[in-house]
Every structure is written in structure tokens, then in C-alpha cells.
């Protein structure tokens, strides 16, 4: 069956969507990604959609769902490379991609991922430091 490849780079998973996705392919990607996040213990997912010339409500929902599912699996998602015409259309369609973090290109997306994972690690440590036995 046709599949969108998922590449692993350190703690991150990279996906470049280069085909005009039909709905089942989008669902398959969602399933494959969540499986890989758990299996590879990935901390971040970067989805490059620069080759997509439209994002309709179905694909938009898939992106939002992937972001939500990876969050539950303790990974961050950043969607990068949305074409300006796609962004204009998406907003007029009524999709705000709530909860999906975006960056202009792969480089900025990687930085955003690294940053948010650092912040998270820091916050967790700080929390653990003043965690147990605060009163005593």
C-alpha cells in the first residue's frame, strides 16, 4: 500500500508530504506517525507541507489530530512550509489549525522544536526540584 515515508533524525521524526493526498493516505499517515512516536520515543514531529498546494478541512483536521495525539504521547509537532495562498484559503475556509504550531521553513521549525523541548525539560526539572517535601 502507498505510504508517506517517516524519517527519524535523533529525537525527531520528519515527514515531507509530497503527494496530493487522498483521505485514506492521510489517515494512514496519522496512524503510522503515532506508532512511530511511541516506538522511537520521539520528542518531536516536523511535518513539511511546502509541496501541498491545498489544505482542505480533512487535511487540516488530520494535522490538528496529529498535533493532539503527539502531545498526548509527550511529543511536540510543528508544521512547516505552508504556502501563502494555502494559508489565505485555510483561514477563509474557517480553519484556524488550533493547537498546531507552525514555522515558515524546516530550519525554523527545528529550532522551535528544540526550544520547546528544552523548555519542557527545564520546566519538569524545576518542578521536580521544588516538588516533594515543599512544606518540610
Amino acid at each position: 500500500m502507498e505510504r508517506i515515508p517517516i524519517l527519524r533524525m535523533g529525537n525527531y521524526l520528519l515527514v515531507t508530504i509530497q503527494v496530493d493526498m487522498h483521505d485514506r493516505l492521510a489517515m494512514q499517515l496519522q496512524e503510522d506517525l503515532t506508532t512511530r512516536i511511541a516506538k522511537d520515543q520521539a520528542r518531536g514531529v516536523l511535518i513539511d507541507i511546502s509541496a501541498l498546494d491545498i489544505v482542505d478541512s480533512f487535511i487540516g483536521r488530520m494535522l490538528a489530530d496529529i498535533a493532539g495525539m503527539s502531545r498526548v504521547l509527550d511529543a511536540q509537532t510543528v508544521v512547516v512550509g505552508m504556502q501563502p495562498a494555502v494559508a489565505i484559503t485555510l483561514v477563509e475556509l474557517g480553519l484556524s489549525l488550533h493547537g498546531v504550531r507552525t514555522a515558515l521553513d524546516v530550519e525554523r521549525g527545528m529550532k522551535l522544536l528544540e526550544q520547546s523541548i528544552d523548555d519542557q525539560t527545564f520546566a519538569t526539572r524545576a518542578h521536580e526540584d521544588d516538588g516533594p517535601g515543599g512544606e518540610s
Binding site: S57, A85, I88
Partner: peptide, 29 residues
């Protein structure tokens, strides 16, 4: 893909092409 080709042939701007293709995708689904 067909709506894209036709909207290019009719001389629509990229934004308007994208809007039409997206609308067509929604209704086709």
C-alpha cells in the same frame, strides 16, 4: 487536479486557484 488545470487556463491568480480547488475538494468529498 482538473479544477486546478482549468483555473490556470482561465487565468485565475494563485490565491483564487487555491480557493477554487479547496472548495471543489470539500464538495467532492
Amino acid at each position: 487536479q482538473t479544477v486546478r488545470t482549468w483555473s490556470v487556463q482561465q487565468g485565475f491568480t494563485l490565491v483564487d486557484q487555491t480557493k477554487m480547488v479547496t472548495a471543489a475538494s470539500e464538495i467532492a468529498r
